Simulated assay, not measured.
Amino acid sequence: MNSTLNGKVAFVTGGGRGIGAAIVRRLARDGAAVAFTYKGSAAIANDLAESITREGGRAIALQAD
């Protein structure tokens, strides 16, 4: 993981899938801890957060509408 955003926290609305998920992945890869919202599938959003964690990042999925 790159350390460009080390020590920073990012909050992404609509980060559970599509372009939002790609943004979440990029922010995490660049070192940010990421919190993101999702509206639909908890399983998909949690898989994304777990994937980031397995790769050494920090992420949390929050259901919001």
Rank of each mutant, 00 (worst) to 15 (best):
A22M: 13
G14K: 03
R29C: 02
D47V: 00
G31R: 06
T4C: 07
A49S: 14
G57L: 10
Q63L: 09
N46S: 10
A42E: 14
R17P: 00
T37R: 04
Q63F: 02
T4V: 12
I60Y: 01
G57T: 10
I44V: 15
A22R: 14
A59F: 03
A42H: 06
V34I: 06
Q63R: 15
I23G: 07
A10T: 07
N46R: 14
S41T: 11
R58G: 02
F36V: 05
D65V: 10
I52L: 11
R25E: 15
G7T: 04
V12R: 03
G40E: 11
I19V: 14
T4R: 15
E50T: 11
T13D: 06
R54P: 00
V24G: 09
G31C: 07
L5W: 13
R25V: 06
A61K: 06
G56N: 11
A21F: 08
A33F: 07
G57W: 09
T53L: 02
G15I: 07
G40D: 13
F11Y: 15
A64C: 14
T37Y: 06
L27W: 03
I52N: 03
G18P: 05
L27P: 04
A33I: 07
S51W: 01
E50I: 00
F11K: 01
K8P: 01
G56R: 12
A43W: 00
T37F: 04
T37S: 15
G16R: 06
G40Q: 12
G40A: 12
R25D: 09
F36C: 06
G16M: 05
G40P: 00
S3A: 05
V24Q: 07
N6T: 12
L27Q: 03
T4F: 14
T4Y: 12
F36T: 04
G40N: 14
E55Y: 01
A22T: 13
Y38N: 03
A32L: 10
A59Y: 06
L5I: 08
I52Q: 05
D65P: 09
N46Y: 02
L5P: 09
A28N: 10
I52S: 06
A22L: 12
R58K: 15
F36Q: 06
I52T: 07
G20D: 02
A32R: 08
K39L: 13
A28I: 10
V12G: 03
G20I: 03
G18H: 05
G16V: 08
G15V: 03
R26F: 00
E50V: 00
N2I: 06
R29E: 15
G56T: 11
K8H: 13
G56A: 11
F11S: 05
A61C: 08
V34T: 08
G18Q: 04
V9N: 03
T53K: 15
A21N: 08
A49Q: 09
G15M: 05
G15Y: 08
A61Q: 05
I19R: 04
A43E: 12
G18I: 07
L62Y: 05
L62W: 08
R54Q: 13
T13H: 10
S51T: 13
D65R: 13
L5C: 09
R54Y: 01
G7R: 06
I44M: 12
L27Y: 12
E55G: 11
